[in-house]
Design a protein around this nucleic acid. Structure first.
Lengths: 229, 229
DNA sequence: TGCTTTTGTGACAGATACGTAACAGTTTTA
DNA sequence: TAAAACTGTTACGTATCTGTCACAAAAGCA
């Protein structure tokens, strides 16, 4: 039961393309699971976390973008690299894909060799730390698998939203996030919430982070948004 | 017999096919037992729970469908993954429609490689890596062999579902499991059960674990699920 | 300094998630 | 065969979280 071959999840509605992908990935020595739509993909991820996901953009019902967004909202699945496949080559689409949190973007028709290289590259990037999703910043440690956050020796108590917020920040310390971006990342897409609500949750996050003392690690960037550190 | 070899039960009435299957599974490092009909299968399951069952659909007397259904009704055996073998692909849909609760379907003639992959995949889903028959957490000890749980010096009395719930938790202490994941692992996959039912059984597990005193080791993670510790 | 814009924050009502007792239907045990 | 144990669902109470508002505070600007 050698579990040391990386597991790849292929999400593609078109059977022929799906099999081509799967075949090539298997030939490369990966353990492949297949999903033919977004719902199935999310289910499979839940059941058996793959090491990487190759995701078609255009799919009926739940689009690749939406699947990606949902994966990136949940801290425990956020760390799985997503390679987005799309027929659209415009820069705008690529930006949009990456904006949603995709880790790489490959335009169809792709060369198999190139795609394999990208898969390996993403795995190389993430694999070393694959043992539990664990983010650190300063003396703050967030463990996605156990949903625990500690600062120094103290365990912090965060609400669900604050937890996701912090996890988003810790993904890229120092990066400035606009309120809109945070709403998109932390709250999800089609949800109408006042942007000022972000401020309130930032406040709550701050209170939680400094409950046992220590400096406030959240930086306000006037006119732009917030950042960690 | 080293207990860290996963045990597979092959149920197939046709001797030649049965041996092919068994041979390949043994070559993969599994401990294989054989049954040539449904009654024998149920008997063998009762006396020595296998980790996974490969079940032919068409058998005289007690059909694979019926065997599967009976296995999935009993909470004790419900968690054993069943891979159903069927002769034609159209039949797969038919069998699916019968709601047998099988975990996966493979069409004959199957490629040995594919079948092995599916077997491993199911095993990974249900029984990740912890094969040890003795799990410990804090002062709680779970002995899979004798189906007994003790806390400190006291022996606890758990129902079958609570037992499986606890053993899932103890496989990875600290990890947060969503209700869906728990339903998948503890109840089985194609089973329709309300997610809130999980809460009730968590409550029962808690009551059992704290019956003789001691802190409640089960942690509720609002919006996410439950974890041990 | 005064004026404008942006951000921080306490309060609050409504929404939501969770714990649990009760219950009816089964299965298992004695 | 009767009693005991177990399962899944429901309903209801409660704790916690959510989003919005109002106003205070801070930051920029002239």
């Amino acid at each position: 039961m050698s579990a040391d071959q990386p597991r790849v999840l292929v999400v593609e509605d078109e059977p022929a393309q799906r099999e081509v992908l799967a075949y090539n990935l298997e030939a490369e020595g990966f353990a492949v699971s297949r999903a033919q739509n977004g719902d199935e993909a999310l289910l499979l991820v839940d059941e058996d976390m793959p090491d990487i996901i190759v995701l078609d953009w255009m799919m009926p019902n739940l689009s690749g973008i939406e699947v990606c967004r949902r994966l990136k909202i949940k801290p425990e699945t956020r760390g799985i690299p997503v390679i987005m496949l799309s027929a659209r080559s415009e820069e705008v689409d690529k930006v949009r894909g990456l904006e949603t949190g995709a880790d790489d973007y490959v335009v169809k028709p792709y060369s198999v060799i190139e795609l394999m290289a990208r898969v390996r590259s993403q795995l190389r990037r993430v694999r070393p730390s694959t043992v539990g999703q664990r983010l650190e910043f300063d003396d703050i440690v967030l463990d996605a698998e156990s949903h625990k956050v500690t600062r120094g020796a103290d365990e912090l108590k965060l609400g669900p939203t604050e937890f996701r917020l912090l996890s988003t920040f810790m993904e890229k310390p120092g990066r400035v996030w606009s309120r809109e971006q945070l709403l998109d990342r932390v709250w999800g897409r089609d949800i109408y919430v006042d942007t000022r609500t972000v401020d309130v949750h930032i406040g709550r996050l701050r209170k939680a982070l400094t409950y046992f003392g220590g400096a406030d690690p959240v930086r306000t960037v006037r006119g732009a948004g917030y950042a960690l550190g």
